[in-house]
Design a protein around this nucleic acid. Structure first.
Lengths: 258, 258
DNA sequence: CGTCCGCTTGAAACCCTTCAAGTTTCGTGG
DNA sequence: CCACGAAACTTGAAGGGTTTCAAGCGGACG
């Protein structure tokens, strides 16, 4: 927590300063941790070395870009990211959001290049697990890959749900599912308590859900008027998850980043 | 081709009987082939044993169902399948179609259960690669899993495109992309020639693309009137792929089944 | 020959988008 | 600390693509 002291000043979290600190993920609940132990266990890399691979990414900065050679996977330690791709030279499409504890870039592992780009939504910090020595894993490679497969499958199932959501559901249902999913992911990484941060722009949410920004705004207002949610600045609180769930017909889902 | 002789009689392929034979995939162009050689190479299974694992699936029959324990992956040898899931007790959602040469069920590999069900769209034949002896692969397991990862990543990228398609594109664009994708997949497996079969109902297409059946019907008619496609029974021919591509802003894509 | 199922076609309704303008928030610099 | 400009968000009204509802068509099969 030495890094980004200045972020504490800049935070506009509805007057609440704790936004950044709250979202720092402990190593133990980070998805990279399993991978890390792997490397440690076989002595290829030691933990300190990995920690030194931390990287600070300023808001708006890109972690990697499309077609860039794969150099490893990232775990979000602090802040948040979006993954997106410029398609048809007619604007970007956002594929996912990543909050602390989640992984980025894994699906480039065997293709060799990243298939999209990742941009920081706020000042963020990531850990990099470099994959130069992947083959040095030797006999442990298989178990390592097993983890990779499991995470990829989770992502696959998430994407299938997302296709369903975006293809057949109303604005209310999409946005409700989005909020519930986000809440669940924050909870899973140990930030259950009292609501959560919504680090992305409404524009980004709209893009991700296949809606217009205006519709997102209107739908959120409707949620607010029905007292389903409480939104102040970037801080969100689900007042009636049960009702939201029934509106949305939401069922639990894997998070995109692992 | 001994199996399903009766299919030749039943075929309603616009009076054309060759539908089934045409779509039989040769072992060499089947995605399972790589896996097979793997097993052969290390002597766990011999090729004949695998071939004996072929299974005939009648139209409407399910290859596997959701939550059923994973017992292996299937390659479509003949016929076609859809993967789908009953969600919200309000009808099914179709996640993908599988034509000869493509794989089914791979994403259950490390989760242990299938996450959806697969139903034959017509009388079909599959090869099963049983995964009981996965661990018996020993030192080759890693290379095997590497293949699995590559295919999963392809599927992931396909699903992301699908989300984009279904979330932001018009009916014309969705249907155009669907046809182009299908044509490309048939071509990739060696059935390039003269159009291809459309084994699924318009209802299924609509479901898959997040449209109503009526819209699919109307859009196909529009394509026909613009002389972009020629549809007779289940036989489709793209008359002007270039134009279709520009309408669709389609760019090549991985197939869902590997 | 009749029924069933898949497909077609039309008309009305609706949800969402687009366009446009206004309001608030944010960040920067004076 | 305030002020200004830019960006984000809100709100309204009009328009359009798709859905829904409803009816009719046509081939396949018993």
């Amino acid at each position: 927590m030495r890094i980004m002291e200045q972020e504490k000043q800049k935070t506009t979290d509805g007057g609440n300063v704790e936004g950044v600190d709250q979202t720092e993920v402990a190593c133990e609940s980070c998805k990279l941790f399993g991978f890390l132990r792997f490397f440690e266990g076989i002595g290829v890399e030691s933990s300190p070395q990995f920690l030194s691979r931390q990287r600070v990414v300023a808001k708006g900065e890109r972690l990697f870009v499309s077609d860039q050679p794969f150099h490893g996977i990232y775990a979000v330690k602090e802040g948040s990211f979006k993954s997106h791709l410029n398609v048809d030279q007619q604007g970007e499409q956002i594929y996912g959001f990543y909050i602390p504890g989640e992984l980025l870039g894994l699906d480039a592992i065997r293709v060799g290049v990243y298939g999209y780009q990742a941009t920081a939504l706020e000042n963020s910090r990531v850990c990099l697990l470099p994959f130069e020595q992947l083959d040095a894993l030797g006999p442990n490679l298989a178990s390592f890959q097993e983890q990779v497969i499991r995470i990829l499958v989770d992502q696959l199932r998430h994407d299938q749900r997302q296709t369903l959501l975006v293809g057949r559901k109303s604005a209310e249902e999409r946005l409700g599912a989005f909020l519930l999913n986000l809440a669940e992911r924050y909870a899973r990484h140990g930030f259950g308590g009292d609501g959560f941060r919504l680090p992305m722009l409404q524009n980004d949410i709209a893009n991700y859900l296949g809606l217009s920004m205006e519709t997102v705004s209107r739908t959120l207002r409707a949620f607010r008027e029905q007292e389903l949610v409480n939104i102040q600045g970037r801080r969100v609180r689900l007042l009636n998850p049960t009702c939201l769930r029934s509106i949305t017909q939401y069922c639990a889902d894997a998070q995109p980043g692992g």
